[in-house]
Write a protein that binds this DNA or RNA. Structure first.
Lengths: 99, 99
DNA sequence: CGTGTAAGGAATTCTGACACG
DNA sequence: CGTGTAAGGAATTCTGACACG
């Protein structure tokens, strides 16, 4: 696992890095926009990728979007990616090509 | 600053990642082998590079080296690098070359 | 020298709730 | 809906010291 995706930061650091309040960060988790891991004791752990995602979320919030709208956008993006990958898989299977 | 060098991890995470005890990690700091940053409240913050360095230190310790020997090795390495860089600088100046 | 541990305190984080709008 | 805040408690970290070897 890369340094970018490894969950290692406490919420205080993430708050400093993103400019968001701990309250905001926890709320975005409640709204299924962000998914930190937990330590044994229950404290949240975030990755740099999470920090990037939070900054992206912050932008969208500033644009006036609601959390469920952002979540919907993310889901759409993922589904488009899936579609593209499945298409690529089918093409590969059909023509026996290797990338 | 890259994800590798940004100081963001608390000592508990570093302990998990390296397999070293917090006591050992603090001791290596006392012996000037590692240099975490501090939060306002005084808690230590480490980077992934620090984690790598700690694993390197752990190896050397297992080899039976003492902390001052490891510190001496590091210093030597740095000085060699400096020498090489200065030499490169002089050559560039002498021949007006650009890399 | 290098590391474990118990001690006491401080910084950090957690959750659920109330408030505002 | 999104966020601030005070509340109480728990997890985490801090330092200095003693112990062992």
């Amino acid at each position: 696992m890369s340094y970018k995706t490894k969950k290692v930061m406490p919420i205080g650091i993430v708050s400093e890095l993103t400019g968001l309040s701990p309250r905001q960060i926890r709320y975005y988790e409640e709204r299924k926009l962000i998914f930190p891991e937990r330590s044994e004791g229950g404290t949240r752990k975030y990755s740099f990728l999470d920090v990037e995602r939070l900054m992206y979320i912050a932008e969208k919030m500033e644009d006036g979007l609601q959390t469920y709208e952002i979540r919907r956008m993310e889901k759409q993006k993922n589904q488009e990616e899936l579609r593209r990958e499945m298409l690529r898989g089918q093409l590969n299977a059909a023509f026996r090509q290797r990338t």
